[in-house]
């Protein structure tokens, strides 16, 4: 589904990604760990095509098509979807309208919201004054409306309370077709998490640690998380290198 080869990315003059190679096959979900500031969000934003992230070298392809130069909305229309770590507020634009936009008119926001306890936010300006957990739910519902082939989730569970974690988990499970047999899954995911809580709700096939713009190791995501907890990032990247 997603193939990244030798990707080098700058923000202004700062190198944030240094030779990333990554493959996420159809139906698989991969997990990205890494210290604060290591470049995880930058990687997702680059895959989505944000202008600030200048690709200096390398190639991103999605569904067999080179998308490295495509504008954001064309990537979205091809089937890439991103839930933001820190989404912006847009004054005056109603959440319901954004949900409608995401689905290109295919869903009824009221119905979607009712299913995930989100009705009271429909009339509010998108993300304006939303609490941390509310922002995450808003992001994920937008993705659900968008129904992407591949979901890029940037810390979808951070700041979410235990009860809402269930809601968030359910949305992500739906996005990634967890209810299907692994071979029958058509959707892929790339998820950033610090806590790993989200792995209870998805089938995480593979994990990585990103350190200073480099993907340093890969393996079973639960094992990696264990090691990070036990030995810390420095030690962990050294041993798994």
């Amino acid at each position: 589904m997603l193939e990244i080869d030798d990707l080098w990315v700058n923000i202004d003059d700062k190198e944030v990604l240094k030779g990333i190679n990554l493959r996420v096959p159809v139906g698989e979900t991969h997990i990205l760990f890494g210290k604060n500031g290591s470049g995880k969000s930058s990687l997702l934003m680059t895959i989505m095509g944000f202008e600030r992230f200048a690709v200096k070298q390398g190639r991103i392809s999605f569904l067999g098509q080179d998308i490295t130069q495509l504008p954001i909305y064309e990537r979205a229309r091809l089937g890439l979807g991103l839930s933001f770590q820190r989404p912006p507020t847009i004054r005056g634009v109603k959440t319901a309208d954004v949900l409608r936009v995401c689905s290109r008119g295919a869903i009824v926001p009221e119905v979607l919201a009712a299913a995930y306890d989100f009705t009271q936010f429909l009339d509010r300006e998108i993300n304006y004054g939303f609490s941390g957990g509310e922002l995450k739910r808003s992001e994920l519902l937008q993705l659900l409306a968008q129904n992407p082939k591949m979901a890029l989730l940037d810390e979808p569970e951070s700041g979410v309370d235990m009860e809402n974690l269930q809601v968030v988990g359910a949305i992500i499970a739906k996005l990634l077709q967890k209810e299907r047999r692994p071979q029958a899954r058509e959707k892929s995911g790339l998820i950033i998490t610090h806590t790993g809580f989200i792995m209870d709700y998805v089938n995480a096939d593979k994990g990585y640690i990103l350190l200073e713009g480099r993907l340093l190791c890969s393996g079973n995501p639960r094992d990696i998380l264990q090691d990070i907890k036990r030995f810390g990032y420095e030690e962990c990247t050294r041993c798994r290198r």
Binding site: M48, P71, I72, P88, I90, V98, V101, Q142
Partner: peptide
């Protein structure tokens, strides 16, 4: 730019994203 790109990530082209933001502003 951040707001425009946010809506573009939801599938709106640039003109549509700007109109949506302007519509919200004038709302």
């Amino acid at each position: 730019a951040e707001e425009v790109e946010y809506l573009m990530a939801r599938g709106l082209d640039e003109d549509e994203a700007v109109s949506t933001i302007v519509r919200g502003f004038l709302n």
